[in-house]
Design a binder for these strands. Structure first.
Lengths: 191, 191
DNA sequence: TGCATTCGGTAACATATGTTATCGCCCGGC
DNA sequence: GCCGGGCGATAACATATGTTACCGAATGCA
């Protein structure tokens, strides 16, 4: 994560450098649990290589909320923010290289940077983007059929469809894996 | 909106006072369109009395995204932020009293206040809460049946069910109004 | 008062989606 | 090379949900 910010905000590079040493690099196989549902999130994660999903277990049904790929950062946001048990699990999908930044260091970093107007603007912008992301997802559920949502995914975020096993995508779209399979074959016939 | 902030942040009251005069008070009947889909959002709205919905038209189908009541502020966020055509309409549900603050004044106010650490923290907190709100909505679509979502609404935000016509609630829950009626009668039988 | 409009309930039918089960393919470990 | 697990397709059936149509109550307005 810090590498990423360093590229974007070189003028703040002294800050980034100071915290680089606190990051822990992990090289893990697929299906590695980085944070378990019910535990308090104590790290911010940054994906250098591979991919990761945010998910949860609902009465034995595995549901995926979001996918993360190279150069994306994540945490179980609500848990991280409020020190509450995480509603979600964070788990690798592919063999991955991940950096962990412990919460206390990120908090310190944020405090230091709260004096920097550039940084504040960036934080607000990032926060606004996330808000819009989830809002768009929400609106899509109200507006679109599962078939349309799948087509949106294919056209707007094809890397997800290419790299992620289909049953994860099914739960992300809010349908059963059987039905996603039907959707795909229906779309194939249409051409 | 400014009244509201003044209560919460009395230490910043000189700021609020300065902008109070720019607010325009409107008293409007039900079903008044405050912002039309496709136009650029130029105001921030604050509901003093009544209620308002954020909605859009999807091939002739009316869909509701969110409800707002007394002492809540809103705008078509993406349009307001990026000066793009609004994806949404803002419309009163009940006869309402609404305050409008033109965008340029809100922008000025934000610029002035960007020096105030308290204000920044508040903005980030508000933004985080909105993000969590939409994320919870999104997760609910993945996790819950329409019946469960209706029950959540009844138990967590009963004022919505009490004050808002049912067909708006149906589209907000992502079902047809006929099906919401079925859900209600099924729940009534269960007791 | 009378009338149109809005709103909510219900029925009947069509379609979408879930569930369970089975099959085949591919791939990694041994 | 063999084997088991993960993955995806498909079928058959059950259930959920949409669509259209109709009715009646409540409401606001002429």
């Amino acid at each position: 994560m810090l590498f990423h910010f360093k590229d974007k905000f070189p003028q703040l590079s002294t800050y980034w450098d100071k915290y680089l040493e606190f990051q822990q690099r992990m090289e893990v196989p697929a299906k590695t649990v980085l944070l378990e549902e019910g535990k308090v999130s104590g790290h911010y994660f940054f994906v250098e290589k591979g991919c990761v999903r945010l998910c949860f277990n609902n009465n034995g049904n595995d549901k995926t909320v979001q996918f993360f790929f190279e150069n994306e950062g994540l945490t179980s946001f609500e848990s991280f923010l409020k020190n509450t048990p995480s509603l979600f699990t964070i788990e690798t999908i592919e063999p991955s290289v991940v950096y962990l930044l412990p919460k206390k260091h990120l908090t310190n970093l944020m405090d230091e940077l709260s004096q920097e107007p550039d940084f504040i603007k960036m934080m607000l912008a990032i926060s606004a983007e996330r808000q819009l992301h989830y809002m768009h997802e929400f609106v899509s559920f109200i507006r679109d059929t599962p078939e349309q949502r799948y087509q949106n995914l294919v056209s707007e975020r094809p890397h997800i469809v290419q790299r992620v096993p289909q049953h994860y995508i099914a739960s992300y779209l809010g349908v059963s894996r059987v039905h996603l399979s039907r959707i795909k074959s229906a779309l194939a016939k249409k051409r």
